[in-house]
Write a protein that binds this DNA or RNA. Sequence first.
DNA 1: CCCTCATTTCAGTCCTCACTAATATGAATG
DNA 2: CATTCATATTAGTGAGGACTGAAATGAGGG
Lengths: 113, 113
Amino acid sequence: MGKSGYEMKAKFIRGFGDKTRLQILESIKYKEKTVSQIVDDLNGNQSNISQHLACLKGCGIIVCRQEGKYMYYSIRNEQILNLLERMDSVFEQVEEEVAACEKNDELDCCPRT
Amino acid sequence: MGKSGYEMKAKFIRGFGDKTRLQILESIKYKEKTVSQIVDDLNGNQSNISQHLACLKGCGIIVCRQEGKYMYYSIRNEQILNLLERMDSVFEQVEEEVAACEKNDELDCCPRT
DNA sequence: CCCTCATTTCAGTCCTCACTAATATGAATG
DNA sequence: CATTCATATTAGTGAGGACTGAAATGAGGG
């Protein structure tokens, strides 16, 4: 893979790597919403969320459609949705594993010294 | 999901969101390697790569095992590997889609004005 | 047309993070 | 135990990105 390929892929993945953007994605996961609806959902700053939406759109993660003065945002497609869900489940599993592992009296899974 | 939950998940995802770390993962994808081997593979800086390895480990994405003076790193488990591959394929598909879409004489998929 | 509402854009600040160079730890070996 | 090799850690720097408030754009309704 070309050097710039990794950079682009990293940028794409980083689209998911922010708590506000994850919340936005959660909010529009199963149905499109307007910016104001999302702002309400997250109880966030409108400008901030608009910028994150632009970021998600730039990464190809979401799409939008205008209807009158409203802009509706939604997850780009099934595959992105699946990826999101996969990220969720893998994260949860790893989280548990790591937690369980660290419980062993700081005898980490991996030699520390 | 708790507020901090999103933050942790975002951190986990960000583990994948860097070109050097993606290269490292590619390098150890199918077999464990020592730090020096990875450094050679990527033609990179030892300190830099060591730090990225620590990051990946901290995110629960990779694990390591010591053998004498060597430290072997590998992908944590099958699920992480699958997630990685899924990220790859979704990214490629989105990339194509976006490229094709932008070809339409700047008539973007989504109203711009 | 003017006004209001929805959304985007801009400018500025702060903080995180990737990178480098230098130093430290730690294991093996003579 | 002194040296060498593999790796980790630390400190410092610079760039990017998240956030805020204010201003700009754009669509509809009176």
